[in-house]
């Protein structure tokens, strides 16, 4: 564990609490992509099956359980109690393409041919693009509630810190994980536009709105 990874994981946790806070405070999930949230649930379930086969640390297991449980809870909230507030008409990104694409990539470039490694690879590829429906929705509506943009920013910052974590681990441990690196770099690049708008607008107290 290093400081980049720890802060990254904590930002990931924070992003989930920010999202739950947004839903609870505004009593609405308007502007939140259910597709992105459902994709994250699929990502966590397919990646963390090693909960049953491997024990790394209490921290590792608790975080995995939290990510699975919280993503299931968010999908539930959007699907049932807050369904009337869900902006389905702007959440129109074709998420099935992302799932099919990640599945094909997982089969073409798996970490190994063990079923858990194929699913792990699939989840890494899927996570890289899972934010796209959310970003697409924000582009379509042209703006987002400030708290929703905080959520996306925390997620993007978490990914950016993972890049620094990998550089650090490469030099200190000789750690290499090409699949995670490439997918992680792609994932971080997807946030580039968002970061720019967030930093120039939201940080100055303005609404997240596209120029």
């Amino acid at each position: 564990m290093n400081i980049f990874r720890l802060v990254a994981d904590l930002l990931h946790l924070a992003s989930i609490f920010i999202l739950l806070l947004k839903i609870q405070q505004t009593k609405s999930c308007a502007g939140v992509s259910l597709k992105t949230q459902a994709l994250y649930f699929v990502v966590f379930v397919t990646r963390y099956l090693d909960l049953f086969t491997h024990f790394y640390s209490v921290y590792n297991s608790l975080m995995k359980l939290f990510f699975i449980a919280s993503s299931a809870y968010i999908v539930y909230l959007m699907w049932k109690p807050y369904r009337p507030t869900y902006s389905a008409s702007t959440d129109t990104f074709r998420a099935e393409f992302l799932i099919v694409g990640a599945a094909l990539l997982g089969l073409a470039f798996p970490d190994s041919w063990h079923i858990l490694d194929i699913l792990w690879s699939f989840s890494i590829y899927l996570e890289a693009v899972a934010i796209l429906p959310q970003l697409f929705q924000m582009t379509r509506t042209g703006e987002a509630e400030t708290i929703t943009s905080h959520y996306v920013f925390a997620l993007g910052a978490y990914r950016a810190l993972y890049l620094m974590n990998w550089i650090y681990r490469y030099y200190t441990e000789g750690y290499m994980d090409v699949i995670a690196w490439v997918a992680g770099a792609v994932q971080t690049i997807l946030y580039a536009d968002f970061f720019y708008i967030y930093l120039t607008r939201v940080m100055r107290g303005r609404l997240f709105s596209l120029p």
């Binding site: 990874r5 491997h54 190994s112 490694d117 995670a180």
Partner: peptide, 10 residues
């Protein structure tokens, strides 16, 4: 081990 590769990151 059940898997070839160990992934200790979240």
């Amino acid at each position: 081990r059940a898997r070839n590769n160990v992934h200790d990151e979240l």
